[in-house]
């Protein structure tokens, strides 16, 4: 066992409960070899705070539903190594459902995305 931990900040807001302002909540999670941002968020949801809203599906860089904004940059949370002092927010452009979860809807399959993934 190691006692190394990681601290980072997560955006929280519940529009369903009429919260108009978001806030950042700080969490501490244990470090392990290869830990990714999504692992840290899932650790929080399962062990620390069941109410955290976070979305993912495949865990292997295929579905892109785990997109988030870290320190201002859009990333796939299942692939980004978790680091101290990260600031984690939902992706912009989409309607916020809660915390880090947005509604992708029609926009998810934007032609831009399909192009960059498939066209030669």
């Amino acid at each position: 066992m190691n006692d190394r931990t990681l601290r980072f900040k997560v955006y929280r807001r519940d529009p369903g409960a009429r919260e108009t302002e978001g806030r950042f909540q700080e969490y501490t999670v244990p470090w392990w070899e290869g830990i990714k941002l999504l692992d840290g968020l899932r650790y929080i949801q399962e062990e620390v705070d069941y109410s955290l809203a976070v979305r993912w599906s495949c865990r292997i860089e295929d579905c892109r539903t785990c997109q988030m904004r870290v320190n201002g940059k859009v990333v796939l949370s299942c692939q980004v190594p978790l680091e101290d002092n990260m600031v984690v927010e939902p992706v912009p452009r989409y309607r916020l459902i809660r915390d880090l979860v947005v509604e992708f809807g029609e926009k998810m399959e934007s032609s831009e995305y399909a192009k960059n993934e498939f066209e030669i």
Binding site: D14, P15, G16, D49, Y50, S51, L52, A53, V54, R98
Partner: peptide, 12 residues
């Protein structure tokens, strides 16, 4: 018991 109260995207 489900302790968390949000009604949207509540994984618990």
């Amino acid at each position: 018991r489900v302790g968390s109260s949000p009604r949207t995207f509540n994984l618990e």
